[in-house]
């Protein structure tokens, strides 16, 4: 077990897996941002001491194996339905801390209705929304958040907005509603932003503990595999392309 690896004499362990994470190896590709985001979720769960009452919801997509990576209860939801499943769990047992972890295809295409209405009801849940502008697991098809001109396997000549519309700005949409407590957009392409995303995810869980209601952290992420670029260039893609359409920052913060 990695976590129990013997520390040689004279060495001090300064970095380890969060307690909420299991020893299961990640199934993500090199350079994928899921790994960092998943760890930030675990750190938040550790910091708030809520592992024993947390139930996670794994989506359909690259994070479908999410349940393997955590040491808390988990349920896997149908594609797009995580916010409805979260609603059922939380309403059935309000003592649970319920979070969903969803990609852009899951949350912003097939699950748009479930997401919008859970947000509008102000469901007291935490949603982690990983926006990497592509369907990763199925092989790189156009996502609702795919950028104009971006080549995918279903937009081989680049996304033509006249035919397929524009990147869906779901956080901006949800921020217009009265229901949500906290809507923010973050990124993890460098250390500073990892720290900012960490604070946002912590806040989104803290809101649930305090009963503030629907909190969503969108993380603009890179999928180097389907962009067909190196991990470093994946980070560049985020800063030079994606953030032009998805500017970072808090979109809604309700302080009660």
């Amino acid at each position: 077990m990695l976590a129990d690896a013997k520390i040689p004499e004279g060495y001090v362990r300064v970095f380890r897996r969060p307690d909420s994470m299991s020893d299961a190896p990640y199934t993500y590709c090199p350079g994928c941002h899921h790994g960092v985001i998943g760890r930030l979720v675990a750190e938040a769960i550790d910091e708030l001491g809520i592992r024993g009452r947390t139930v996670g919801i794994a989506p359909v997509g690259c994070a479908v194996f999410l349940y393997r990576f955590y040491r808390c209860d988990f349920v896997q939801a149908a594609h797009g339905r995580a916010c409805a499943v979260a609603t059922g769990l939380k309403r059935a047992n309000p003592d649970l801390i319920v979070f969903s972890y969803q990609g852009d295809g899951d949350l912003a295409a097939i699950g748009t209705a479930e997401t919008v209405h859970a947000a509008n009801r102000g469901e007291n849940i935490t949603v982690i929304f990983v926006n990497n502008q592509i369907y990763g697991m199925t092989g790189g098809e156009m996502a609702p958040t795919t950028l104009p001109g971006q080549r995918t396997v279903t937009t081989p000549e680049g996304r033509d907005v006249r035919a397929t519309g524009y990147p869906l700005k779901i956080s901006e949409m949800l921020a217009q509603l009265d229901g949500p407590a906290y809507i923010t957009r973050q990124a993890v392409y460098d250390v500073r932003h990892v720290q900012m995303a960490r604070r946002a995810i912590l806040q989104a869980f803290r809101n649930q503990l305090e009963g503030k209601g629907f909190s969503m952290v969108e993380v603009v992420a890179a999928c180097p595999t389907n962009l067909k670029v190196s991990p470093v260039d994946g980070n560049k893609w985020v800063t030079e392309q994606a953030l032009r359409y998805f500017p970072l920052g808090d979109l809604k913060v309700r302080d009660r």
Partner: peptide, 26 residues
């Protein structure tokens, strides 16, 4: 008990899925 009018039948059955996973009769 909990009564909730969902946004669709699809959402309603998935709420049932969540509540059932939590262990209550639904």
């Amino acid at each position: 008990g909990v009564f909730l009018q969902a946004e669709s039948e699809v959402a309603a059955i998935n709420m049932v899925y969540g509540a059932s996973a939590a262990g209550v009769r639904t």
